[in-house]
């Protein structure tokens, strides 16, 4: 269960790469991705989620390029993007059932999987437009978890959550991290530090792997300038 970025260059259109020569390795557990605004954290996560093809280098999951068979890779992937969901006129349950169908979950198990996740994440079956920010964030997490992914990618999941919602998210992430790899971008690392198994600090020069926080405390980490 290892994700490897091997000298990856990322960028949009045909311009200059946003990130060049990115190399890191992450396996089971929760990895926090931090770094200054605009440095390319979301770009890195999109590439890891196979939404953006690298300009150079290779991204490997379980030893195989994610672009060798992207459809098969996406069976094992859950991705929660940064922007909150906006689905006027659709109920949460209908939306999850639809996504479950898209994700290829068999008809017979779809309903039970959706109901199970809605119960676990305390989601009411209402129109998504009536959801609070915290509920929308949980709904996005439920959508990502439909296929019980082994690779879970979260982009700034704590933004806009209140302190109690953050506490619940932490408890949930520590459960989830026990048997999968979670790659999570955050601007407020102190909110998730206590659960992290590894830190990736992204600078314009590429990822600096900061290792296990128990072995290396935040005080000896490089400060960005």
């Amino acid at each position: 269960m290892t994700l490897i970025f091997d000298q990856v260059a990322l960028g949009y259109r045909h311009g200059e790469p946003v990130l060049a020569d990115l190399s890191f390795e992450a396996s089971r557990g929760l990895y926090l991705l931090t770094g200054p605004n605009g440095v390319g954290k979301s770009t890195l996560l999109k590439a890891a989620a196979s939404l953006l093809r690298p300009l150079a280098g290779a991204i490997r999951w379980r030893g195989r390029s994610i672009w060798a068979d992207p459809v098969a890779f996406r069976w094992e992937l859950g991705y929660v993007p940064q922007d909150p969901l906006d689905l006027p006129g659709q109920s949460a349950r209908d939306w999850l059932l639809y996504l479950a169908a898209l994700k290829g979950i068999r008809h017979l198990s779809r309903r039970s999987r959706v109901d199970q996740l809605m119960a676990e994440l305390q989601l009411a079956d209402e129109f998504v437009a009536q959801y609070s920010t915290g509920m929308k964030q949980r709904l996005a997490l439920a959508a990502a978890l439909l296929n019980d992914p082994e690779l879970l990618i979260l982009d700034e999941p704590t933004t806009a959550l209140d302190l109690e919602e953050k506490r619940q998210l932490r408890a949930r992430l520590s459960e989830l991290a026990a048997d999968r790899l979670i790659l999570c971008a955050t601007h407020v690392p102190e909110e998730l530090d206590s659960l992290a198994d590894g830190h990736l600090y992204l600078t314009t020069h590429g990822v600096i792997d900061r290792g296990d926080p128990l072995r290396r405390g935040p005080e000896d980490l490089p400060r960005s300038s």
Partner: peptide
Amino acid sequence: LKVVSARR
């Protein structure tokens, strides 16, 4: 339990 944080 009311868990503030957990590390496995």
